[in-house]
Design a protein around this nucleic acid. Structure first.
Length: 466
RNA sequence: GACCCCUUCGUCUAGCGGUUAGGACAACGCCCUUUCACGGCGUAAACACGGGUUCGAGUCCCGUAGGGGUCACCA
């Protein structure tokens, strides 16, 4: 069997779209599964819309997801001459022709066919026509001679057998009037030149596949395997749009999602292996199969992504998570403050991770460790206001008497104080939490007091109780 | 409108002719508990509809309805 080669071929018009990321993932997994190769091709034939920022965004997104592509990246803009050469050949073998139809004529044709309920918008006017001198005032396009009788059959690896009557096929444009080749043609040429064995892409390309198959055949080239995967929808069942959704992978990165979680989530969207939910990268490579891709589109669910993220957060080595947070801390605090207090974060990290489902929240809820001054919010103001001041002041005295400052002693002191004063532990713990962390939620407050140290702890309490 | 594709709990899905229709997320409840989480236990929740085929249909076939995609000198 020949080598499996897949490709991800985005057009660089924005960020790496989440749907594109999944397409890339599937292509990558399939190639890895078959011990094949995964290529990246930038479809930048539309120079107006393609930007270098967008190209870099694609690189960055794929790198973040660790979907490694073959070193050689193909840029379609660099293959223009090759495409033209193929178009010339198609012209030569009478599989393509010049079309001199004017814009007005084209519009009329389109209108007519709409009225008749036809799918074609071009009626083949110039198929067998020889241009007169006056026709040549118009810069022609080159059109493909689509077969007009019979059927074109696509045996799609996901969609199954798709049959289209050829009388519905348009003579699509291969070369624009400005002399640049179109997507439909470039894709075919590149996929052939790159020796792509499996084309895995969104099913919005399903109709294109039928047309492209005919180009492959005209050229006498072997038609690759197609797998058209369903699109990802938003929570309303519509195509994901920027308007209501975070659509770029960079947005999820900034949200504090781990790439492993993103990949795991994307993998399970439309693909499954029994009841497996958490799938390691190695397992994914081993068990991935196109047969298990569903045909129906699936909706994007941020809650589930976050749930998976929290799983990966808990199961990723802590130093890795620490380095993610470190980047955020560095922007907020100087290096010195971080250095002096990092051991405290390290001590509390697993307790903090347990409480949150993304890096940002972990960072946000670690700030009390580094902040010199603890500010209160509405919740904590209320807690302190409703607490018994005298009790806390008395408790501070007891705190000062602790000789061996460790978690057990601190906790026991609070418990015995509560007991001796007929209070519940909550009556002590909550006010402490409020003035020590500035929040009504936190990890075990006694662990926090321990790692902050006796002096700082008492200082923080006294700020609001003296 | 035409063509193509799709349809199991709210969501992601298992199921490949005989199941009390399973799991996960979310929701809700209880337990644990200094808070929030984690964890544990539990509740509620689905085969779009109508015809066939069959002893038997979520599973096969045909309609209907609904949803999606495509109909560019964009990719």
């Amino acid at each position: 069997m020949s080598e499996v080669r897949t490709r991800f071929a985005p057009s660089p018009t924005g960020t790496l779209h989440i749907g594109g990321a999944r397409t890339a993932l599937f292509n990558w997994l399939y190639a890895m599964n078959k011990n094949g190769k995964f290529y990246l091709r930038i479809e930048d034939t539309d120079k107006l819309r393609s930007t270098t920022e967008a190209i870099n965004a694609i690189f960055d997104g794929l790198k973040w997801l660790e979907l490694n592509w073959e070193k050689q990246v193909i840029f379609q803009s660099q293959n223009i001459n090759r495409y033209k050469q193929i178009i010339d050949y198609l012209l030569e073998i009478n599989c393509a022709y010049y079309c001199y139809a004017s814009e007005i004529e084209l519009q009329r044709m389109k209108k007519e066919s709409r009225e008749k309920g036809l799918i074609k918008s071009y009626n083949g006017l110039w198929r067998d026509r020889i241009p007169k001198a006056e026709d040549k005032k118009i810069k022609p396009v080159v059109r493909f001679k689509s077969p007009q009788v019979g059927q074109t059959i696509l045996n799609d690896l996901v969609q199954g057998k798709v049959v289209v009557n050829n009388n519905q096929l348009d003579d699509m444009i291969l070369l624009r009037s400005d002399g640049t080749p179109t997507y439909t043609l470039s894709v075919v040429v590149d996929d052939y030149d790159m020796n792509i064995s499996h084309i895995i892409r969104g099913d919005d390309h399903l109709n294109n596949a039928i047309r492209q198959i005919n180009i492959f055949r005209s050229l006498g080239w072997k038609v690759p395997n197609f797998a058209h995967i369903p699109l990802i929808h938003d929570s309303d069942g519509k195509k994901l749009s920027k308007r209501n959704n975070a659509v770029g992978v960079d947005e999820y990165k900034n949200m504090g999602i781990l790439p492993q979680a993103m990949k795991n989530y994307l993998l399970r969207l439309g693909w499954s292996n029994g009841d497996d939910e958490i799938i390691s990268e190695n397992d994914a490579i081993n068990i991935f199969s196109i047969e298990n891709i569903r045909k129906a589109p699936s909706r994007f669910d941020l809650k589930k992504l976050k749930n998976i993220n929290s799983y990966y957060l808990k199961n990723t080595p802590q130093d890795k998570i620490l380095s993610c947070i470190y980047n955020l801390l560095e922007k907020k605090y100087g290096e010195k403050i971080i250095k002096d207090n990092l051991f405290k974060l390290e001590y509390l990290l697993s307790d903090i991770i347990e409480r949150h489902d993304n890096i940002n929240d972990i960072f946000y809820n670690s700030k009390f460790i580094f902040n010199k001054i603890i500010n209160l919010n509405n919740d904590t103001i209320k807690i302190i206001k409703n607490s018994n001041k005298k009790n806390i002041i008395n408790y501070i005295i007891q705190l000062k008497e602790i000789n061996d400052w460790n978690v057990n002693n601190i906790e026991n002191s609070a418990k015995s104080f509560a007991k001796n004063n007929s209070l519940s532990l909550k009556d002590i713990a909550m006010p402490l939490r409020a003035c020590i962390t500035g929040s009504k939620n936190s990890p075990n407050i006694f662990k926090i007091m321990f790692i902050l140290g006796q002096k700082d702890t008492i200082k923080r309490i006294e700020k609001y109780y003296l």
